[in-house]
Each structure stands twice: as structure tokens, then as C-alpha cells.
């Protein structure tokens, strides 16, 4: 896939490299970490990196973590001859916990950018749907859209609570919000914002979504019902991120597909379901 400007998928430098943390900000339960990448090309929205900390990673007996963790970048900025990469994390287990514990100047080993990224179709009106930590690649995609003339996106964000939603505000996303507890925005799921817009059928839309598997599955089926194409940034357990282990497959109409090289963004119409065994938490 290529990005909005027809740029081919960027190629990752071979191997892993050290990247130091330059900033750490908490947004309620989420943490954004900025790291300085002096070795990699500019990624496109939806691509991801495999990250591990330099200290205290591997060798833990049952504490894990041993394998690197997949994280989508949320924002990229040029800084001198390097990049500042922003990651948005939710602490859901030992790996993400270890990473969210990092402080400024702590070092990570990163490899990437990996995966295909979203394929932005600038001819139709983009609708961006983010659920929870799935906000990360949606922020990156919105940044790419804002760089284009004459295109703007409608953005729907779903979060558990107002506290979680503070991450969307931090990134300056112009969005409509749904929270599960009703503490801010509309009470309910983000797909309740999406469905009426698609039913109105007053424009040619493409939906780009990232979020937990049940949300992606709801988006997929609403889009299928309205015959609207959707690109879903999905998750599965990954060991390598570059096609080496065949561990990250999801079932698609083309058979088992390695999400790390042929995803993580898949067309909804390639799937019977976006509910992937073992993904999510």
C-alpha cells in the first residue's frame, strides 16, 4: 500500500536500533512516550514498530516480557536529521507496563516501521473511527489528512471514560466523542455515532478504524451493510513484526494472512469477522 501522496511503504532499516525517550505524558490511564529515532525513515499512518526496553527486558522468569511489543506510532515530527515518534500506550500487562514505566533519557530498542499502513483514498470523504488505545494510528492518519488540501475527516472517538478521552484532546483531534459511562460526549459505543452518518448516505465515504476487536467487528458489519469500504487496523499476537515467525496470522478470504507484513490494516471486505482469536484483552 502507499500513503496519501502515493509514497511507497517506507522500508525499515535492517535490524534494531537504540532510541531514547524524550518525553512522557500521562493522559488518565494512557501514557504517551516520545522517542528520538535517528535511524529510520518517516513512517506512514497505520505502520508500527517493535519495541523493547534496553534494561530489564528478557530473562524474567514468569514476569516475562521477552519478545518485543508492537506499537503503532501516533505522531511523527522531523527533528534535525532524525524523527520524534510518539507512541500512545495502555498498560495491559508486563510488556506495556515496563514501557510505560520509562522516564526521559531511558533507552529502547526499536525496529521498524513495519506493516502496510492505511491507504488513504483522497477522492472520498474519510471517516476515522478510534476506540480506546486504537486512537494512536487514527491521530497519525488525521495528521496526514490535514497535510492535504481540500480534504477533511470526520472523526469519531469512543472511550471508556472522560479520563481516557483526555488523550484525544491532547493530540488536538477535532472529534465527536462517545464514552461508555457517559462522563463526556454521547453515552454508548462509538459505532452509535458512525451508523447514522453511514445511513444518511449523503457522500462517498471510506471508513478507517482502529480499536478493540469487538469495535472493529461492529464497524466492519455496519460498513458491509451500507456497502462502504473500510480499512481496519487490527491486532494479533506478534513475535517478530517482519514476517519471520508466521505467528500473527488472521483468517481472511485469502487464507491465513500475516498481519505484520500484509496488515495490520486490512480491508473489511477481506474478512468474515474482525474478532481475532487471542487478540485484545
Amino acid at each position: 500500500m502507499s500513503d496519501a501522496l502515493g509514497i511507497e511503504r517506507p522500508q525499515a532499516p535492517f535490524g534494531r536500533r537504540v532510541a531514547a525517550v524524550t518525553a512522557r505524558i500521562e493522559h488518565g490511564p494512557y501514557v504517551s512516550l516520545t522517542v528520538r529515532d535517528s535511524g529510520g525513515p518517516r513512517p506512514i499512518a497505520g505502520q508500527f514498530y517493535m519495541l523493547q526496553t534496553v534494561e530489564d527486558w528478557g530473562g524474567g522468569v514468569d514476569g516475562r516480557p521477552y519478545l518485543p511489543r508492537a506499537l503503532s506510532f501516533a505522531r511523527v515530527e522531523q527533528e534535525g536529521d532524525g524523527l520524534l515518534l510518539d507512541f500512545l500506550l495502555e498498560d495491559v500487562g508486563p510488556g506495556t507496563h515496563r514501557i510505560t514505566e520509562l522516564a526521559v533519557n531511558d533507552e529502547m530498542l526499536i525496529a521498524g516501521p513495519f506493516g502496510n499502513g492505511f491507504e488513504l483514498n483522497a477522492a472520498s470523504w474519510p471517516i476515522l473511527v478510534a476506540g480506546g488505545i486504537g486512537l494512536a494510528p487514527i491521530v497519525a492518519l488525521d495528521d496526514e489528512i490535514r497535510d492535504l488540501d481540500g480534504v477533511r475527516a470526520t472523526i469519531f472517538v469512543g472511550m471508556r471514560t472522560n479520563e481516557h478521552a483526555s488523550a484525544a484532546a491532547h493530540y488536538g483531534l477535532e472529534h465527536e466523542l462517545a464514552t461508555e459511562d457517559g462522563s463526556s460526549g454521547v453515552r454508548g459505543y462509538v459505532t452509535e455515532l458512525l451508523a447514522p452518518l453511514l445511513s444518511a448516505k449523503n457522500a462517498d465515504h471510506v471508513v478507517y478504524a482502529c480499536g478493540p476487536p469487538p469495535m472493529l467487528e461492529a464497524v466492519r458489519s455496519i460498513c458491509a451493510e451500507h456497502e462502504i469500504s473500510c480499512q481496519l487496523a487490527m491486532e494479533s499476537g506478534m513475535a517478530c513484526g517482519f514476517g519471520a515467525c508466521f505467528g500473527c496470522v488472521v483468517p481472511t478470504h485469502d487464507g491465513y494472512t500475516r498481519l505484520c507484513v500484509d496488515g495490520p490494516v486490512l480491508d473489511g471486505d477481506k474478512l468474515d469477522t474482525a474478532l481475532v482469536a487471542g487478540a485484545g484483552h
Partner: peptide
């Protein structure tokens, strides 16, 4: 061969268990 159904990976503190299934 299509290989085994996912999930195919389990992480250990010092390694992993895989059930890739020779796709």
C-alpha cells in the same frame, strides 16, 4: 498446508511456545 489456527504464540520469560504448524 495452511498451518494451525491462531493463536499460535505464547510468550515465556525466557522464550516462547509456538504452534505455527508448518504453513
Amino acid at each position: 498446508r495452511a498451518g494451525n489456527p491462531p493463536p499460535r504464540l505464547w510468550e515465556l520469560g525466557q522464550g516462547m511456545i509456538n504452534s505455527i504448524g508448518l504453513p
